[in-house]
Design a binder for these strands. Sequence first.
DNA 1: TATTGTTATACTCTATAACTATA
DNA 2: TATAGTTATAGAGTATAACAATA
Lengths: 142, 142
Amino acid sequence: MTEIEAVRGEELSQALVGLAHHVLHLFNDIGRGYDLTAQQTELVCAVIVRGRVRMGDLGKIMHLEKSNLSGLVDRAEKRGLIVRARDPKDRRVTWVELTEEGHSVAMRTHGDVTERLRRLVGELPAEDRRSLTTVVERLATA
Amino acid sequence: MTEIEAVRGEELSQALVGLAHHVLHLFNDIGRGYDLTAQQTELVCAVIVRGRVRMGDLGKIMHLEKSNLSGLVDRAEKRGLIVRARDPKDRRVTWVELTEEGHSVAMRTHGDVTERLRRLVGELPAEDRRSLTTVVERLATA
DNA sequence: TATTGTTATACTCTATAACTATA
DNA sequence: TATAGTTATAGAGTATAACAATA
């Protein structure tokens, strides 16, 4: 690796970290308007795009230990945003679903998040946007 | 906006969130090997690439409120990783610097993080990597 | 008056391990 | 035995506001 490539690698690293903060901070910014924490906001957004989700899958999506997720879901349930439902076929499994209020909040927060991301990405030329989509999806599935 | 573009926008949003988690979770994974939390790991990495940093700038870099940063720096200082230094020219300003131990830890964790990011990005074809670099840097400065 | 940073409080989040229930 | 999820505990991180020191 040449020195120039090393420096560019360094720049790319810092830029990726900055981008990551920017993206996850959106849940914070947007959640505040609904008196939700960043994690609660991401929780309802993650549920609404999937309809209902197993606890285990939610943990993977949000990079949370199962015990941490239990607490997060407890608090969201107390707030009336979601409910737990046992799976009748495999009673070890718990599904997370939105309440009516949770659905309403999730619709708006999720709309806000995607709008903000769209605006961020929309500032790019169309060709860059296409390559970003391709690249990010490839990374995300790697 | 066509429906296809809307769906792709949705996919891009989810992929960006997944990528953001992946990137920030690196600080978690790597810090664990040195018995550091993710935030402590990012703290020493942020300091080492800049030599020394003002509290205010650190807050912007790490997306932290000044009060939260005070606590994080307190704990890192207790652990002997960093020290605070008053700026003699503007005594309101506090600079954060690494101790010898902090420098040693930061060298290794920062090396690990950039290596992991390089590996992640390195799985891409050269052309995608170039476009990602360009795009991410443009987003990060926007 | 504005800026930089700290302190105080209450709450949320996180890591770890031990535990229960189901398969 | 393995899997899905909960509980318990201690510590770390976070939001908010009030505060002190300096410019």
